[in-house]
Design a protein around this nucleic acid. Structure first.
Lengths: 243, 243
DNA sequence: AATATCAGGTTGTCAGACAACTGGTGACCA
DNA sequence: TGGTCACCAGTTGTCTGACAACCTGATATT
């Protein structure tokens, strides 16, 4: 029905980028090193120069390489990078996934305090609607787990939006979007939903309450309690696949 | 001497990326919209199709657009993005810079606690050497401010490294590298160094102490005190240029 | 010995071509 | 009339070859 044909034959530039970044990650390419010329890479990979150029242009976009006309392309210093990127490889290992989750949670926790300071009535109404949706989801034996999962995400997004820092918002949305895709199936499957969800909802209700009261310290505290617990509950689950 | 010829004539693909992203940021392009065909864009911008392709390949790399053979290229949903990027435009406004600083500080504060849990003797020695460098820098009337600035950055990097989360480390190094370039001149110029620096060093010494004792709560607390204060001191400075 | 010139290599850009693929149109047929 | 199918124009992905601008190092010249 929804097989969706996950062919995904990776494009040539993608493969070259992957090859170069893995070489970089493996230490075969180090900051300051000069890349082979575009023509040489094209020959090596058996593709046209345009393909190599597209690959290198992506690396340049991230500040991972810098090129000088007439000279060549060079691996830049780590501090020169202009993008934080999540590669598919990050999700291969369970550990990596949990570390990304930790990073997302850390930012959310920190900015929950800012949210408490900048809250508006609209925001509060929004959050309470989300809590209501969570509570209703418990009764939904069919899609309840999925609804709860999505509601949790929405709460995070609302908090991030409240904090009045678009960079933090972008960051949270980006990470969350990436890990959510991987976590959804785990969160939905095999969930002995109700009792765990009830605890989680209580935690989040306290967080919302703190934000509502405009108490940044309490908001941070409640946020930490919930998101640390949520991460622990997830880590304890045996069915979080490790490839 | 070190003028270094900042010519920086932006490349054609760069300009097109900038044009498209600004159109996207301005709401002229919205998620789900279809981009003009590569040939149409090439005509519009007066460049070759290869240039347009390099630009779009960069956008695809970030998950900002997705393309399908035979159909076209489309603006993706925000949750689809795979990269958090700092564009040069972020530094034009003083406010943006402070928000980026807030984001960096938030992550550092949060992971200072993790650092306290995962500290090693090597790390502690490293941190104490950095504190020593800061204290010595006070006496250096010529390069003291710059030395202090760099030492503060190194302390952040060491803490990030300690926390055993390479994603957080990457993120901090990236953001810090970007804002440092913009802050260094401000931090160094017109610094009535000694008295402010002494306060900052004391704050950081307490942070190091907390990490040394393996106390995550104290580490987080001290980190928050220092980095919030540092941000406030910076924001209070009148010479932080606003373009 | 110091300087000017040149040749080769490298990146940036251009132009044109073709394959694979998609969506819709219109012809054809039952 | 209604459904099926071949076809066509448009699009992306890739390839090829070319040239300009530029840099480096070697060579020739003074």
């Amino acid at each position: 029905m929804k097989v969706k044909s996950l062919d995904r034959s990776p494009s040539l530039p993608e493969e070259i980028v992957a090859s170069l970044t893995s070489a970089l990650h493996a230490g075969e390419l180090r900051p300051g090193d000069r890349l082979p010329s575009e023509q040489a890479l094209a020959n090596e990979f058996g593709v046209a120069r345009t393909v190599v150029r597209e690959a290198i242009s992506q690396l340049k976009y991230d500040g991972v390489v810098q090129s000088r006309v007439g000279v060549g392309a060079f691996i830049a210093q780590p501090q020169e990078r202009t993008a934080f990127r999540i590669s598919p490889a990050c999700f291969q290992k369970r550990k990596e996934l949990l570390k990304l989750l930790r990073l997302r949670n850390g930012v959310v926790i920190e900015f929950a305090a800012d949210a408490a300071l900048a809250r508006s009535k609209r925001d509060i109404a929004r959050m309470e609607a989300i809590l209501k949706e969570m509570r209703e989801a418990i009764a939904d034996s069919e899609h309840g787990a999925e609804r709860h999962f999505e509601a949790e995400r929405q709460l995070i997004h609302v908090i991030a939006k409240m904090a009045d820092n678009e960079h933090a918002l972008n960051f949270i949305v980006m990470i969350d979007g990436q890990i959510a895709e991987k976590l959804r199936s785990v969160a939905v499957k095999n969930t002995k939903a109700t009792e765990l969800a009830a605890v989680a909802i209580e935690e989040q209700a306290r967080l919302v309450e703190a934000i509502k009261h405009g108490d940044p310290v309490a908001a941070r505290d409640k946020a930490r309690k919930h998101y640390d617990n949520a991460a622990r509950r997830l880590a304890d689950r045996a069915d979080l696949a490790d490839v």
